[in-house]
Nucleic acid binder design. Sequence first.
DNA 1: CTGAAAGCGCTTACAG
DNA 2: CTGAAAGCGCTTACAG
Lengths: 335, 335
Amino acid sequence: MNVTSMDVARVAKVSQATVSRVLNDNPNVSEEKRAAVLAAMEAVGYRPNVLAQGLRMRKTATIGVVVAGITNPFYPEALEAVGKQLERAGQRMVLWDSDRGGEEAALDAVQQGLVDGVIFTSVSEGSGTLDEALRLKAPIVLLNRGSINASCDQVTSNNFEGAAEAARYLYQIGHRRIGLLGGPLAARTARDRMDGFLHGLRELGQPVPDELICDALFTHEGGRMGVQELLDLDDPPTAVFCVNDFSAFGAVDGAREAGLDVPLQLSVVGYDDVAMAAWRSYQLTTVSQQLDAMSGRAVELLLRRVGRHEAPVRHDHFSGALVIRNTTAPPASQA
Amino acid sequence: MNVTSMDVARVAKVSQATVSRVLNDNPNVSEEKRAAVLAAMEAVGYRPNVLAQGLRMRKTATIGVVVAGITNPFYPEALEAVGKQLERAGQRMVLWDSDRGGEEAALDAVQQGLVDGVIFTSVSEGSGTLDEALRLKAPIVLLNRGSINASCDQVTSNNFEGAAEAARYLYQIGHRRIGLLGGPLAARTARDRMDGFLHGLRELGQPVPDELICDALFTHEGGRMGVQELLDLDDPPTAVFCVNDFSAFGAVDGAREAGLDVPLQLSVVGYDDVAMAAWRSYQLTTVSQQLDAMSGRAVELLLRRVGRHEAPVRHDHFSGALVIRNTTAPPASQA
DNA sequence: CTGAAAGCGCTTACAG
DNA sequence: CTGAAAGCGCTTACAG
């Protein structure tokens, strides 16, 4: 903030332009001058002012990321994956949480030139501001949270198919009364998983009655309350599919609180395959997502768009895989 | 990035300076002009360029935060707490992970004027770069990770005392052979908790033999490996204190994998009181930190320092509290 | 190869 | 109250 390229120029006895040239690896600098500049930089402890560079170059080498509730264990993993890619690409990351107005803030930031682009891992469907930013050609990609309306790059799991597979699996091991713990309908991810699950069961001639469908809000507490509601039914389900792992942990915990054994008295399946899912105390059956590959793609698409805005819109799907662990078993009646 | 204050000036038929004045709520603007400018801004969809403002004002309203392994459930909670405070103060947050060179990067960023200050929730003791940044008056505060050497604002829990209390509690309910699952010695937090624990037991005439001390690396996997090592001893401990919750979950899981009942055959206590600690499947006995208060203080200290660099250095301590749940019980021999 | 100069988009004394 | 102008720290044509 203190020593500028001008100072360096002074001690190196060259023009400020030359300092800038060596900074930018411009070949048009003689070896002597380059050496002198490098030495001077070292001597005075020069750090280029990133703001000034950004103002001049119209880019900042920083990318915004918005998550929805960082306390959901899915997000730290997503941030780690995205962060790794961003770091590799020499980009910084600024973080927003949509639980605290992050969506708007991020959109503002791209338009203010503070970040070169943003990755949304959460979008409220039909937000006018997103559409507007897109119209203004702001580089934006949606990761793990698609949107039908928005015409921008999107990378998602095949949530519908993954959930359908989970449905088939539960049916196949003998369950006939299966509950669904859904997520916020504003989230396309939640809707796709719910739809896929419902579809899978319907195809097997096993439609899910309304009483077996609860909203678990994507959270542990939601999952916990959700199962308890289901368990209070006159004819409770023998298995429950949760729209994400976070709420599935809640469902397992809720069932255990009610004194049930998981999976012997209730099977639970989640979605995401977060690291915790493999922990001994849960060993959750779930659907895994290719988070690293997805994050890599998202960063790649975004950076491409930061370069040339006119690239055609892409929508990439990655497949998921059912990971069978120990929260699922045939229903007690069959055991 | 496109429409500038010049454009606004043009349509409002005023000078660019006047546009800037209304932007900055300068009282010296007539009501008519102000209205005209506001209308023009609206009409052209103006967003001030934050980079230019930052360059001029020498501040950016963004704060850097560095965490050590965002996958540790403590960090999302810390980020949420810090983020809430930052948001309230109108500051943005850029995030770095020290697992991927974030410490250096953040230090660079303050000096490049990219962020106004940085909150470290992780510092490698004796990093020369930190000292250098401090000498250059960079606004820096250490949150939850003190350092004896660094002369900068620090806000920490009273880790030594909290750990000593955990030790006393285990002794008091009857344990005499107690293991310690430590963390990286480079982290002052880990050292203080280890020291406090060891001290507490020593005072009770119950020094901990070396064979009962393992490093659990602050991670789930570390905790899991750590207990297994302890459990393989000829005379295994009946209780174990873990230096953070993340590794304590691992310890519980490791014990369960070994077929032990927690707490009947092994008591486990953690540190942090992360949300998960209260979940049914763990119900971990642990030491809570006043994370919200600590985060608030850290932000406050940092912002104060961003304003006037010469404020005297402060080092604030917050007390912790033992939270007794269900991973602790008297040893089997006494039950 | 190198320097003087313009300009990125703002803010803020400085004169009216 | 208001405008013209300087300057924040860079990059990059433009002339040599």
